[in-house]
Design a protein around this nucleic acid. Structure first.
Lengths: 237, 237
DNA sequence: CAGTGGTCTAGACCACTGG
DNA sequence: CAGTGGTCTAGACCACTGG
């Protein structure tokens, strides 16, 4: 069926076959694809080999598997390309004389269900919550709201954040081994626009940020920038 | 050794053990970790089970494997503030049945001063200009306005963009060797909001994108997304 | 109930690395 | 050469799903 490149491993050949079916539209989102046993039979390989092909594609989010049900074509994912933008954590520090901040909130709260699951905690567990507004030359440039895993950064609430920013402290205690960002345009709540000194219906840039230390989530943050602020290099168009 | 959560699969227990060694610093970057055979013996499992644990951690870039040599602790990754942004060129293609587009503009224009300098042209030189609106399931998801260097992509205007997207064509003719993005929240002009089917004061995400082929600028694009659209993975907070 | 994916075994052969 | 990871087999038992 699939034209094999010489000596391409069999599981890779099966992957290629499946990917061709997906790309050509033969198998549509939501369709059930052949079972491991069927693929093993069709390609004359053991089930473990067929399984490997399917599993790796599932790991890549091209397929979704459910025991007892089968394997299904995933909804088209927004394929992503990594783009380097400003590192917000390094941008703001107290060695910069233009910089200042204001602590709005610094407290322990009980984890709601979603946040608990993201941080690997149980619902109701204690976690740390902070809200800080960052200024450059007395203009508010960022609202930073963080939820912090107390199992990793136990002394988060006890730091003096007029000396070090929350992000700098987090990076010092638990250097991120992975960071995930998500960017969106929003009109923030009045609480945020007020703190940033904006009109109540201002368009803002929202960056959601999750950071890991090894395999544990250290912090989940929401950063709001005034719309006039831009991430990345110079303005082009 | 490892405190197993009851009924956690054995490969997962071995993963936990390894991760503990990494987190505690027992195994440092560059160290060689026990071989599959050694782990299989220590944990009294088959080699395939031990292998699965090690392989999954290698897939997560915590370990690096080389046949004949062994498995080594990876260097801590340099954290870059990478934001995952949709790769428009791959996301939008005509083999995706949910996709469609509408060409608004496809023309040659004379370069204004700023654009000429960005593209390495002289003021008044001809350049190509396109505006395309992309749809997913008949909902507008992106306004794409491009200025294209005619010295690199001379046949840009002659393509049939009902068969291939402008970005896909650009990538085919002059694969980008560098891409720069800049992200901003804006309230677009009525022309844009109208084409996207939005209220006239909608908050939108604007991505400015410049792409290079070797050292020449191929295209300068402005991408506008509805504010409800988000770049990157799932919504967190 | 038959079928599915999830886990696991105890072997095997291979290409490759270092000493 | 002995050891490593990469691939692969032909079985097995399990929890789970739908009809």
């Amino acid at each position: 069926m699939t034209q094999a490149i010489y000596s391409l491993p069999r599981y890779a050949q099966i992957k290629t076959y499946i990917k061709n079916q997906l790309e050509s539209g033969q198998w549509q989102a939501g369709d059930r694809i052949p079972s491991e046993n069927k693929l093993a039979e069709d390609f004359a390989v053991s089930r473990m080999t067929a399984r490997r092909a399917v599993q790796e594609l599932a790991d890549d989010h091209l397929l979704i598997r459910t025991a007892g049900l089968g394997t299904f074509v995933a909804e088209p994912q927004a394929v992503t390309a990594a783009v380097e933008i400003d590192d917000f954590t390094q941008q703001f520090n107290h060695s910069n004389p233009q910089y200042s901040n204001r602590i709005i909130t610094l407290e322990q709260v009980n984890a709601e269900k979603d946040m608990a699951s993201v941080l690997g905690l149980n619902e109701g567990d204690g976690l740390f919550h902070s809200v800080v507004v960052h200024y450059r030359d007395s203009a508010a440039v960022q609202w930073e709201e963080c939820f912090v895993n107390p199992g990793i950064v136990g002394a988060y609430l006890k730091q003096n954040y007029s000396k070090v920013t929350p992000q700098a402290y987090l990076n010092w205690v638990a250097p991120a081994t992975r960071v995930e960002h998500q960017v969106q345009a929003v009109m923030p709540e009045v609480e945020v626009t007020g703190a940033l000194g904006l009109a109540s219906i201002s368009s803002c840039l929202k960056v959601s940020r999750r950071s890991w230390h090894t395999d544990r989530v250290v912090s989940v943050c929401k950063l709001i920038y005034p719309g006039s602020y831009s991430l990345g290099a110079e303005l082009i168009i």
